[in-house]
């Protein structure tokens, strides 16, 4: 038995070492909503890219924004669909990488502040000063729409860090969880990605007698595609331009639904300078 084991192990190592280097172009993406069946949905995207680019393309699922950035940094993925903040973080980790496209909707993204109706807060055009002293939940720690921008506006309007401005501060980890927690009244107020809210509202998952939108933030940039700088040296000169052109040219609604975005438009690193400065101003990134 053990002898068999040793032989198989040896065979395994030989097989692993003997494989020729055949680069597979790998990408990852976490949509801002509905993470079910990621492999199936993004497998279709991989097939599409593979056909258009003429190279083998693979999708790997990741759990969190942080895991996506780590995979990008370790060159496990060469292309990634990041949130505004994570894209900036990724480009700081991999200095020669660049933003090549963003979602059409991501040019004017907003977050909603939502409140449990027992707070008596109602929708207003001004920042809701009355949320001071209430309990508040963000989404994931690395989320642009669930954390970065809401925290920026809170600090700007309430003049204090969230820990001091609110009675309790939580991180639900996810926009759907934020809605569930505010709807149940576990937290009085929360900040959520507007697309997730609209989507769940349309699906009838939200009981508006318990939770409602009280404020819409000003617009900011969010999700975008980032590619590593060394892809051309592996897949040939002009490869990253080709990837950009392919992404901008996607018009198959089924492919776009995976993200979900109506189309992709061109973007570059400078577009995200404001996000970088915002993250620095609230201490999420070093100056």
């Amino acid at each position: 038995m053990y002898k068999h084991l040793a032989v198989s192990l040896l065979a395994l190592v030989l097989v692993a070492c003997g494989q020729p280097e055949k680069p597979t172009f790998t990408f990852t993406a976490i949509p801002d909503q509905d993470e079910a069946r990621l492999i199936e949905r993004f497998g279709n995207v991989a097939d599409y890219l593979s056909k258009e680019l003429g190279v083998e393309v693979k999708y790997i699922p990741v759990k969190s924004y942080a895991a996506a950035v780590t995979a990008f940094r370790n060159n496990e993925v060469q292309l990634a669909w990041f949130g505004g903040l994570t894209g900036v973080q990724a480009r700081l980790q991999v200095p020669d990488s660049s933003a090549i496209a963003q979602g059409y909707e991501d040019q004017f993204f907003v977050s909603y502040f939502i409140a449990h109706n027992s707070t008596g807060l109602s929708e207003n055009n001004e920042f809701p000063q009355d949320i001071a002293g209430k309990s508040f939940t963000f989404g994931s720690k690395g989320s642009t729409s669930g954390r970065l921008m809401p925290e920026f506006f809170i600090r700007e309007s309430l003049g204090d860090a969230p820990d001091n401005a609110f009675s309790r501060v939580g991180f639900s980890g996810d926009h759907s969880a934020t809605i569930a927690l505010v709807q149940s009244g576990a937290y009085e107020v929360g900040a959520v990605n507007y697309k997730v809210w609209e989507d769940e509202l349309a699906q009838g998952k939200i009981d508006t007698s318990k939770v409602s939108v009280i404020w819409k933030t000003p617009e900011y940039l969010d999700y975008h595609w980032v590619i590593r700088g060394d892809t051309d040296s592996h897949w040939g000169k002009g490869f990253s331009d080709k990837v950009q052109a392919t992404l901008l040219g996607i018009n198959d609604p089924e492919i776009l639904a995976a993200f979900p975005r109506s189309s992709f438009v061109a973007a570059n690193n400078d577009d995200y300078q404001a996000i970088l400065e915002t993250a620095q101003s609230i201490g999420l990134l070093d100056q």
Binding site: H116, S118, S135, R168, A180, Q183, S184, G185, A186, K210
Partner: peptide
Amino acid sequence: ITTRSPGTEL
């Protein structure tokens, strides 16, 4: 204990 209307989700 600060919850208000956990019934739906539970």
